[in-house]
Design a protein around this nucleic acid. Structure first.
Lengths: 329, 329
DNA sequence: GGCAAGCCTGAATACGTTTACAATCATCCT
DNA sequence: AGGATGATTGTAAACGTATTCAGGCTTGCC
């Protein structure tokens, strides 16, 4: 190598100069560093990974980009991993069927670990990762029974929180607008709400729709519900944008007052939920906590590959604002 | 290698089996593939990169994550690069001073190209990339004179559009709220507005503030402007969130009507700008066009490293909604 | 049958590191 | 002085793949 030649040392010395804690004389190290600087040399991490049979890369598979404020999750996850000395290989998962192919792709880069946001993993892929000793963590998917670690929210708890909140305020006809059916903790939440509402005297689920995702969809949905005389007096949406669409639909299209005539609850507490124009009651999405668990789970398994999968369920809080009535009646 | 042994062939044959277009008999290829499948073998891209002296990785450096709807830029850029056979190595640039270090980090991975979103590059780093033949493209920074290709918006054009729009509607006291001073095309836009407004009889810039970024900041800013009797009759904000904060501040805190008493214009036309609650006039951020240019510039230079840097300036359109008065008077 | 022309294949080398091992050297102690 | 100790250093062998080269095989043609 040129640097070794210019510094008048062996390649091994160059390697040691760039390896923290290696046995090298300060003077030699400096000579190497100067030679490297004049030649614009950067160590080839690729070659290092090859011989160490493991890279400092972590595969990050993203799906459902626009949900839950995943930008922040992506950003923080990246920053935390960088702080731990890893680099992120980012992949966008377009279709659920592609997730296996994506995992295989990043495995080819000898990634040290894999994080999957908003997708589940087929069993055979989980097996391949396990066999190679590559730890995997799923975010916003529950890994129970799949052999994967996961960090998600407690859907049943969430459902009970919402049902109790609405029932305590004497709402009797509750509509549920779900965005994506494949986010299992949200389905859990929907079911939990349904059960508890059905058990309350005089209360019912006015409607339960799937595939209602985004502002326009929410606005359209509330219009349709009111046209069909299935008028609910409360709506829970699995995404804030949908909920805001519902509020605007009620106010601007139907002349229905929020929260007097219709209570609206969103989910994930995006920044826009706090805006004065909507003051949307929502469910806090504990991004920091989710990320902390992710990092902890991955690092622990990089340290000890034999650890069992860990399933974390976080209990989220309701953030109460004025799109719902103030006090329990 | 195990796979070669199981298939009863040489390692070279395995390599050829996984190299599209290589000279290998169909039967042999199939035997190799079957052996690979049973062993769960994936080719080691790291080793391939080593020998080919170039990886299929592209460094993607992100800054200002929450501005301009960069999520979509990040996502689409990733997807386009994947479609071209590249993988993305993502880095978060926390401070402008870190950008050099980030570039060096990704260079160690022998990246084929680098895209930098929302940061400029110091000259010496540009030189290092050029020397290595690694093409670079800056997004939302103008590369003129720096030796970098770049894709950005035409700030002067943008400024003139806005100034002309407001002046034609007889606004006379215009306030400018800038988020980050380091986005050079926005500074260009601000200057262009100032010039043109100053040149118009009876018109003036009522205020020009920097560091006003986000909903809360916008809401606070409009309150302060009105308290200090620097009342503007029109505000241009460099970010939609800020503009929405201004609208809400005007309506809910000051009782000022939008657009009758105060016209508000945002920038980058996020989804929330279209919501019925605000109907914010904004500047379209041409994401697809920006990304198309990025990809085109990088691919062209991967093909021919000798190409000169190219500076693209896109002229953005105004999206007119009801946070500004309808017709020119 | 003999020959040329292709197609496949394996052996060997290279890619830029890390690391075990051995060798060198200075230092210090007895 | 002589040996032991420890710090530094170089040598050489890996890591898993791509690729050149030469040789073996098949095929088709005269």
């Amino acid at each position: 190598m040129d640097v070794a030649h210019l510094a008048g040392v062996s390649v091994a010395a160059v390697s040691r100069a760039f390896t923290p804690g290696a046995s090298i004389a300060p003077a030699t190290k400096q000579r190497v560093m100067e030679a490297a600087a004049t030649l614009g040399y950067q160590p080839n991490v690729i070659a290092r990974s090859l011989i160490q049979r493991r890279s400092n890369l972590v595969g990050l598979l993203m799906s459902g980009w626009n949900n839950f404020g995943y930008v922040d999750v992506l950003r923080r996850l990246t920053e935390r991993l960088e702080a731990e000395g890893y680099e992120v290989i980012l992949k966008s998962v377009l279709e659920p069927e592609q997730v296996s192919e994506c995992v295989r792709q990043v495995l080819r880069y000898q990634v040290a670990a894999i994080a999957v946001v908003s997708e589940a993993l087929p069993a055979e892929i989980t097996a391949e990762c396990t066999q190679r000793g590559v730890p995997v963590v799923l975010v916003n998917r529950i890994g129970t029974g799949s052999g994967n670690s996961s960090v998600s929210l407690d859907g049943v708890y969430l459902g009970h929180q919402i049902a109790d909140f609405l029932l305590a305020r004497e709402h009797r006809r509750i509509a549920l607008l779900q965005g994506r059916a494949d986010i299992n903790f949200l389905t859990d939440a929907m079911n939990a709400i349904s059960e508890r509402v059905a058990a309350a005297a005089g209360c019912e689920i006015a409607a339960r729709l799937d595939g209602v995702l985004g502002y326009d969809a929410g606005r359209r949905a509330i219009n349709e519900l009111f046209q069909q005389d299935q008028r609910p007096d409360a709506v829970f949406c699995t995404f804030d944008e949908t909920a805001i669409g519902v509020v605007d639909g009620a106010r601007f299209d139907l002349g229905v007052r929020v929260p007097e005539d219709l209570a609206v609850i969103g989910n994930s507490n995006r920044a826009s939920a706090a805006w004065a124009s909507h003051e949307l009651t929502s469910v806090e999405y504990p991004r920091d906590e989710v990320i902390d668990h992710c990092i902890r789970i991955l690092l622990a398994r990089l340290d000890d590959p034999e650890l069992e999968p860990e399933v974390v369920l976080i209990k989220p809080d309701l953030v109460i604002r004025s799109s719902t009535r103030g006090k329990p009646v």
